[in-house]
Nucleic acid binder design. Structure first.
Lengths: 249, 249
DNA sequence: TTTGAAAGTTAACCGCAGCTAGATTTGCGA
DNA sequence: TCGCAAATCTAGCTGCGGTTAACTTTCAAA
């Protein structure tokens, strides 16, 4: 076989699978070509930014991303330089609108992927985070759209986290934690804000999912455990777990 | 919010998505931890190795992988050093059994992914190669098994390429190209050995898929075009296309 | 107001996987 | 058999994203 036709002949068989021009970048539909790591940083900043009012510190980010602070510092410098965020050394960072856009894109992909993995691929809600995290890097817009379609255009991930719209808008949802509501309240769980596999398996055992109707039967004083009732009966939850269960307000 | 509980609190919501211990390597089930690029090289060597009898040259590999020869040379040195292949400078390389095992694992993933993308995710057979190529890097064994299951344990990829078994055995299939068979033969297409999207779309237009029954009606002399007949009527195919269509012998 | 621990930053390194430029080997054709 | 072009290889560079070690800044408590 000559060298010339190696490139032009069969592709994926015993005879080969990857015609050179097909390898390329795979971010078709994106055009901008921001790296995956950058988007991950931006998404994490977004999450921190919307869950605290304080500005985002290097160490907090480093912990969340499981990297060392110097890695964060350098990435922040890059991202600031590229216009995704404003940075004040020693003070913290804040996303620019472009940064927020990328962050939301990343968050959308992650949650859409989780929804897809549960509804289409039948993974457990305790398993999807890890898979989604790995697969995120490989998605492009077309694939994202197909997952969206197959999963039935989900509005939330399996844990109840809202999925940003395709044009980058995060739905605003008024929610209250079980630790904040008054005794006697009947409501529907909207979100479980802890994705540790073990905790999720425990919640699943008690049939506590987004969508489950529950009523708050009682609460022990001094931030004590709460008693709740759902279809499967009455359950007692420690404060730590209770404050991670949210209901639509 | 204090730094301590940032790491331990909610994960994927507005409040966070990536608990540090979950990030890890994602090659669970593999244990060996060979990089994706290495596996891609090994797979490409395997494809070349089984489609020619000559030894694999640096330039051929470089073209197939769309990288420069020096990149190949260095990777070959690494892979030889790591025991995946035998290398004779200026002569070529040959996979060791370990190298072949990794190559087959990679090829299995690619083809399984293609099958999954077509049967479950409803992509066209002309689209799947690129998607599969990007997604391959993110798979682990559990995900691979789930795809296998959902796709119905396919034996071949959408183009008819056999899928190596989970324990690394490539099915041996006796096949003949349309350009090799005698006039009058009736047979079933088993494989299309060209994965260029345009060609695939053309084959699809003529309803020439693996599984399609055809008969060879005629062939013009001197490697001329062939006439074939299938459910949709009679078609004329140039020699170049004809030799890329295979039937089970 | 001072000071020291914690947080943030800089400097310098790593491996991976690309690249170009230039040297070397090979082997075919004259 | 000899020489030259093509193939191969070496050397040295890039960017990415990670690390450790050491330095600087901040801020709260004494």
């Amino acid at each position: 076989m000559t060298l010339e036709n190696i490139k032009t002949k069969g592709l994926c068989g015993l005879n080969g699978s990857t015609p050179a021009p097909l390898i390329e970048d795979h971010d078709s539909g994106d055009a901008d070509s921001i790296t995956h790591a950058r988007r991950e940083y931006l998404a994490e900043i977004y999450r921190l930014q919307t869950s605290t009012d304080e500005s985002i510190t290097t160490t907090a980010l480093a912990m969340r991303l499981d990297v060392t602070p110097p890695a964060v510092v350098r990435m922040m410098r890059r991202l600031a330089h590229e216009g995704y965020l404003k940075r004040q050394p020693y003070k913290g960072v804040r996303l620019t609108p472009e940064g927020e856009r990328e962050a939301l894109k990343s968050i959308r992909r992650h949650r859409l992927l989780e929804a897809f993995l549960v509804t289409v691929m039948k993974f457990g809600w305790d398993e999807v985070h890890t898979h989604a995290h790995a697969l995120e890097a490989a998605l492009n817009d077309q694939f994202e759209d197909r997952m969206d379609e197959l999963a039935g255009y989900p509005k939330r991930c399996p844990h109840g986290d809202p999925i940003p719209s395709k044009d980058g808008v995060m739905p605003i949802i008024a929610e209250k934690s079980l630790s904040e509501i008054t005794i006697g309240t009947k409501a529907v769980i909207s979100r479980i804000r802890n994705h540790t596999p073990e905790k999720l398996r425990y919640f699943a055992e008690l049939q506590l999912f987004p969508g489950t109707s529950i009523s708050l039967v009682g609460r022990a004083p001094f931030k004590g455990p709460v008693r709740i009732k759902n279809g499967t009966g009455e359950h007692v939850l420690g404060e730590e777990l209770a404050e991670q269960i949210f209901i639509e307000a």
